[in-house]
Design a binder for these strands. Structure first.
Lengths: 255, 255
DNA sequence: TGACAAAATGAGCTTAACTCATTATTACTG
DNA sequence: CAGTAATAATGAGTTAAGCTCATTTTGTCA
């Protein structure tokens, strides 16, 4: 409880002490210590996973006493939570930057897929921290983690919505179907890629390309238009010939 | 170590004592006790999750002493492992039965999707046990869990391969792309369905139908047939025109 | 420099997984 | 049917990891 308060205090930028101003150096030191703890925890989680990481080892790695951890984080879960939140933040930032650079919907989707894949491959142990959190309970909606997830996912949503607006993706009210297919396929694909070590890079590209195409394919203007145009032309020609043939038959008297 | 040996012994059906035969009642009692333990653990995992389940509570629920648990399972993880293996077994059996009853590939895929979804919704806490196992390490390939997963997944694979053979699904060497998309989408979709309580049943159907269509769509014969009919009409017209043109040429004496 | 607040410490508490010496049960035999 | 050896079960005790809190150290003022 005390720790939780402190955690909030050092995270948010509220005025710590009344006089202020010259507290800067102290604050800076405190925050760098918090960073050191998070960094140590991150590394441990990556290396040996959450379950096998001990608080005492994190403390040692961060160069602080075990008790100090609890001044910054109320418990081990809260520490994992922070590590996960940082991960989401980086992920979201990278996604936004990449999308902003690209104009075409297909390119954007391929980028998002590759970006997601590469990051969950590199930091898959961090992603696993998610599975500890109870995503069923009512509490989850409204949690910081839920918001971070929404923020990340909405980058994808925005790309798709704009793609629909432009007519590059078939319109649907059920955006969740596309979203879950996209991210679900990426996470499962990641495991396959990890399992079959060979040709990882190629598989990443394959998966990203396939998913992007799957989304735009449904009513891809390119293919559909070509076929329709070709058929329409043929049919127009046919109609003209039908008329001409009928007239000819009338003249010659037979069929 | 001792416990592990015992676990193996009571699991496998090897001859426990030399004389054999009349051991039946004792074996039966032992196995029913093992069942009681697994059942208790299953229920606890479902109710409060793996982390918050204590061995002492499992023991109490199963009506045995805490130490007895370790005669049957070397540790808590091994117990979770068994619960998970049982889950896979049920899942695989159900999938096989359902597929056998259906002849059409699309129907089979819809069934598999619905079957998977309904089960991972009902027993999602069991599915979470998977995320504890280290699916990266070399050890995983060759593990019992890996084999059970393969057995389950191969039901899907077989359906898809047969669908390809029949020409109902576009052929591809990259079956893993279809597989990961299918199961990944289902798992992510499950979470969305859990989160938005309303209209779960409808969402299940929607997701199952969408995924099945996605797989067969690429070269769905239906669409292709329509096009072919259209083409056939055109060809008929063309033949008629050829005749008419020939006659016209005869009359007009040109070309 | 002294005093006060903020920060840090680590010995000790609590709890849960796991062990093992002891006891109880069962199946077989003379 | 009593004796006995093998098998099964027990729960007090050990270990270890998360967490607490009385005490100490550090930093910043007047």
């Amino acid at each position: 409880m005390t720790a939780a308060k402190k955690q909030a205090k050092s995270k948010a930028g509220n005025g710590v002490t009344a006089p202020g101003v010259r507290t800067a150096t102290r604050r800076a030191r405190v925050e760098s210590k918090e960073d050191a703890i998070v960094k140590a925890a991150y590394q441990m989680f990556i290396d040996v996973g959450f379950a096998k990481t001990t608080m005492s080892e994190i403390a040692k790695k961060a160069g602080v006493a075990e008790g100090t951890l609890y001044l910054y984080f109320s418990n081990k879960d809260a520490l994992a939570h922070t590590v996960l939140a940082d991960f989401y933040e980086r992920l979201t930032l990278g996604a936004k930057k990449g999308v902003a650079k690209l104009g075409n919907t297909e390119e954007r989707l391929v980028f998002l897929a590759r970006h997601h894949l590469k990051n969950i491959i590199k930091e898959r142990r961090i992603l696993e921290l998610l599975s500890m959190t109870d995503r069923d309970s009512e509490i989850y909606r409204g949690s910081e983690l839920y918001k971070m997830n929404r923020a990340y996912v909405s980058v994808f949503d925005d790309v798709v919505r704009e793609g629909m607006w432009r007519g590059e993706i078939k319109k649907t009210d059920e955006l969740w179907l596309l979203r879950d297919t996209f991210f679900g396929a990426l996470e499962y694909g990641m495991r396959t890629i990890m399992l079959k070590r060979r040709g990882a890079e190629q598989r990443v590209n394959q998966l990203a390309q396939t998913l992007a195409e799957m989304l735009i394919q449904n009513t891809k203007p390119a293919g559909a238009t070509e076929n329709q145009t070709s058929l329409q032309n043929l049919e127009k020609t046919a109609r003209r010939f039908e008329k001409a043939a009928t007239r000819l038959e009338r003249i010659t008297g037979q069929m």
